[in-house]
């Protein structure tokens, strides 16, 4: 990300002149107060929003200049945990997690097997035929995480993924994301949970009113 700015409304910058570089297998916290621009930064990375200024290279592609038809292919390589989960209300938990694999045309049996394994990892295998509305906030959050991870993405973007989880579960979910990083996935976790950040000594990007004010302490390269 090079000198990236984003203004939803002309003149009002949600992000201003942010430059950063994240490598494969790296685990990075994105911190900052509410409204600092965390969600905006993540959205730029999977082409949900376009930068107003600057260049963004993700998996070798320049997002600022990406054709609309190339967006789906990029998103299949990026897993996203949305702050508001964005689950399909009409579908079961199993189907919700499975869509990630459906869109690439994976055969149904394979999808079911992978989804089952994934649901077991987030402790929801017994809920697979339930609908999201009948789940608690924390359970929905875990479904969202399962959906993001089941496709073994090269990049994982998680927006407040532990916001609705009690501490024990938070640790489990964090471990899940850590092991994804260990397998080579670049993981970006937006959070304002200070306790969480302190427990894991990882690189931390701190945003304040749209500006990147801190990048450290772990071995991160900055540009």
């Amino acid at each position: 990300m090079y000198h990236v700015s984003k203004a939803y409304v002309a003149g009002a910058f949600a992000l201003q002149d942010v430059s950063l570089d994240v490598s494969r297998g790296e685990f990075v916290f994105l911190t900052g107060a509410s409204g600092a621009g965390k969600t905006t930064l993540l959205q730029l990375l999977f082409a949900a929003e376009r930068p107003s200024e600057g260049q963004i290279v993700v998996l070798g592609r320049n997002i600022a200049r990406l054709r609309g038809s190339a967006v789906p292919a990029l998103r299949r390589r990026v897993g996203v945990v949305f702050q508001d989960f964005k689950l399909l209300r009409q579908r079961t938990v199993e189907e919700n997690v499975g869509v990630t694999l459906d869109v690439v045309g994976m055969p149904r049996r394979e999808v079911r097997a992978k989804v089952f394994t994934m649901l077991k990892q987030v402790g929801l295998q017994h809920r697979r035929y339930h609908h999201p509305v009948s789940l608690s906030g924390g359970e929905q959050q875990r479904v969202a995480i399962a959906r993001a991870l089941v496709g073994e993405p090269e990049i994982l973007l998680a927006d407040e993924p532990t916001g609705n989880l009690d501490p024990d579960l938070s640790v489990e979910i964090m471990d899940l994301m850590m092991s994804a990083a260990m397998r080579g996935t670049a993981v970006l976790v937006a959070t304002h949970d200070v306790g969480l950040i302190e427990r894991y000594h990882k690189r931390k990007l701190h945003l304040d009113a749209g500006r990147l004010v801190e990048d450290g302490p772990a071995a991160g390269r900055t540009e």
Partner: peptide
């Protein structure tokens, strides 16, 4: 609409 938006976000083609 919501469902379609979500599908697009997880990488579904047009």
């Amino acid at each position: 609409e919501d469902e379609l938006e979500i599908l697009a976000l997880v990488g579904a083609s047009r």
